[in-house]
Amino acid sequence: MTWDNEFAMSVLPELLQGLVVTVKLTLCGISIALIVGLIAAVLRFQKIPVLAPVLGFYVQFMRGTPLLIQAYVAFFVLPQYGITLSPFVTGVIVIGLNYSAYTAEVYRAGIEGVPTGQWEAVAALGLGARRKWLRIILPQAVRTMVPVLGNYFLQMFKDSAILSAITVVELLAAAMKVGGNSFRYLEPLTLAGLLFMIISFPASLLIRRLERRFATTH
């Protein structure tokens, strides 16, 4: 009982369909993580009395609990309160919110990482809020943020396989499905792993290049 090439080729099309779902899932999740994370970071930056600790707790909580359990809660608990979303939409929201806790921290670190001199210079020059943020602070912050965000999104891509547990038919679920139908897990699982690598390896090389490029300018 070892590798069966013919069988492997026969399951590949279904796995590729799963990969498409995985990629879609990740891209939608990234959008949510980028936006919600930004909102959380900006709100925290304002230091509004009640909201700031609440947001702080949100970040802690999302980072302190397993994605799997968060997914279970969204999938099984929310319908009991009348909120029923499809597995895919549930998955996108859960993984997006989960990673928003990480992106919020990245934004915060990125903005705080802009040297004090720059802030002082902005104040000294009397620049307006728009120019201060869009021209001075954010362009510098983004440099340090991009590679870190890239790594998180790569992680999200791989983590999306967890959502198979709430029946999102992404790459792993597709592999388990063809595996279950044919009673063979070896080929589908190995191929699923390879397909993950085919995307994540070049992506990680790209991120490392970005890291190096941005690192040298400081």
Partner: peptide
């Protein structure tokens, strides 16, 4: 490069 869940399975 691969997903942990896949490695576990």
């Amino acid at each position: 490069g691969t997903s942990l869940v896949i490695q576990i399975f």
